[in-house]
Design a protein around this nucleic acid. Structure first.
Lengths: 158, 158
DNA sequence: TTTAAATCCGAGCAGCCCAGTTGGTTTTTG
DNA sequence: CAAAAACCAACTGGGCTGCTCGGATTTAAA
């Protein structure tokens, strides 16, 4: 889960697409002007989205893009995974299955990043385009600070 | 919450520091060789960590760094905030308080990124250095996929 | 049938940040 | 004094991002 601005642009565009979905497909130039993203950049993003099966294209004048599935069936996580390179975090980069597990001293933080990645993915996977449109963001995660609530850090100095 | 590899290096180093904490302070060159991070880069990171009040330095031979607080009182979120530039996400960049709220059409995704940022921060804020050392990662978040469990996406194509 | 709207495609490019290097200076122990 | 360490500032190569340019293909409308 890469989580760069590139993915954000893609999500913005897809939300825009879902919002303006009608009988006619939506052209990229419309999205470009509405979202203030360069047309050519959008083209590159939608090339990936199409290959990932998230949108369908209609060529020729009056053409454009449509969601391949419904807005309630398209998850934000899919969009980001489609446009961002996979890139496995954690430094102990894919050196085989157990490569990093071998010497634990170097990868003490391995589990941490893995778990963080899971958290992010599960959150984004729980949000659909429709959720974003209707601003129904699932705040069903995390209820209260675990223990010894530190309020907001940045306190104790010297 | 920037969440780059830079922050990961800092956390790796801090975990290493917490692990090898004894009577004597830990030198950066020790951490550098153990974690395979360049010494000078570590110096830059620890300069920030020191300014943030997370570590204390001891100069001269036999010197090094110590955690300013205990490993159970140092949260991962603090480390990342210390080394990464703040950088406000969401494109509608800090144009005043209500700047982005003004035209909602452009910032349909605003709430999404904000909520995602909250999720990440809350997770990292719930993990201390001691938690990482003892591999007690709080899996107290998220219990089950919300609804219509889609297992793992990447399925439906044409 | 021509025209033009749109998707498609590939190459290239300026700017930024990351991770690291270099070359010091200061402090402090032995 | 010598050496170990923290400190400090400037610079650099490479990679990614967001974008531009110049096309080509498809196809609806005129």
């Amino acid at each position: 889960m890469k989580l760069s601005t590139k993915g954000r642009y893609a999500v913005m565009a897809m939300v825009d697409l879902a919002r303006h979905a009608q009988a006619k497909p939506v052209s990229l130039s419309d999205i470009a002007t509405r979202q203030e993203i360069s047309l050519s950049y959008l083209e590159q993003l939608f090339a990936r989205l199409r290959r990932a099966g998230l949108v369908k294209s209609v060529r020729g004048p009056g053409g454009g893009y449509r969601l391949a599935r419904g807005s309630a069936e398209t998850r934000v996580s899919e969009i980001i995974l489609a446009v961002d390179e996979p890139i496995s975090a954690t430094r102990c980069t894919e050196m085989g299955a157990t490569g990093c597990r071998a010497d634990r001293s170097k990868c003490l933080t391995h589990d941490l990043w893995e778990e963080l990645g899971n958290q992010i993915h599960m959150f984004l996977n729980s949000v659909t385009l429709m959720d974003v449109l209707e601003r129904k963001l699932t705040t069903r995660f995390i209820e209260a600070p675990p223990a010894a609530a530190n309020s907001d850090s940045m306190a104790a100095a010297s």
